[in-house]
Write a protein that binds this DNA or RNA. Structure first.
Lengths: 144, 144
DNA sequence: TATCATCTTGATACGGCTTATCAATTTCAA
DNA sequence: TTGAAATTGATAAGCCGTATCAAGATGATA
């Protein structure tokens, strides 16, 4: 495990400890691979990791990515017929523009929107830990 | 068919005409039910319409809702494991503040955020048809 | 309005994605 | 080191949406 991901590793261990779960070789491997991505599907990760560990099961990948969601490291997003697991660390300021024609995804960030979100939250007594903003529509190509 | 939905009916007929498709009893029934909703799943509509027409097939609902998407009356959006069909005519959106402690959901609206969304979209060549904004965090009560 | 090519429907089989199941294995606190 | 408890891998099962196809409905045409 690269020491660049110490923070996330620590967060995971904390979650595991709190819920009587165990740190396994597979969980370390999957975390390491996951943190290198901005977002990935279980299937894609399965093929990617087949090289380092040919016996790693697809079910384990699904279970582990869902575990990361519980631990606050990942966020699941349903798109098309698949589930994308977003890396929260990268995603912090990445919102999505999604073309419903060709499924293209464009990422963007806007500080002003973030600021207004904070404002709306505090106005309602909330403290935001994460958010999700997706704009659906047609890209210039698909509009015709 | 209620005469309140004349405009949408006309749009549908236009699409049907252009593509050599036919206007059927089922399509009229489903359109009428669909326009009363802001968004609905095929399954939900299936149960809802079972009263008026017990023989209406689920496949027909899926086909017809997808047809509405093609005709520009509806917009499919993947949510959880299901597909929500949004009524395009309903433009008023509410966004959500979701407490991860007690699961409370607070709805809010912010014109400025909507405006900035449009801005980001057009900057990337997109035309937005719908969006989704969810802020996750803790409400004042759960913060302690 | 009767005809009939074409489209649509309803029932259901099918396929893709994700989760449940369970025996064997691994983890980790004592 | 030991053993209770969690995890894994293989795969069955489940869910959602689409494809298939015979039977029925539609609507352009005469």
């Amino acid at each position: 495990m690269a020491n660049t991901h110490v923070k996330e590793m620590k967060a995971l261990k904390e979650h595991l400890g709190k819920h009587q779960l165990k740190l396994t070789r597979q969980r370390e491997l999957i975390l390491s691979a996951f943190l290198r991505q901005e977002h990935i599907t279980a299937e894609a990760m399965y093929h990617q990791l087949a090289k380092s560990d040919p016996h790693l099961g697809l079910a384990t990948i699904y279970r582990t990515l869902n575990l990361f969601c519980d631990a606050g490291l990942a966020q699941a997003r349903h798109f098309g017929s698949q589930t994308q697991y977003d890396n929260i660390a990268h995603k912090g300021h990445h919102d999505h523009l999604i073309c419903t024609g060709c499924q293209k995804i464009v990422e963007f960030e806007n500080e002003e929107i973030e600021r207004l979100q904070e404002e709306m939250a505090s106005k309602n007594g909330f403290t935001i830990t994460t958010h999700r903003l997706e704009l659906y529509g047609l890209c210039s190509r698909c509009r015709h």
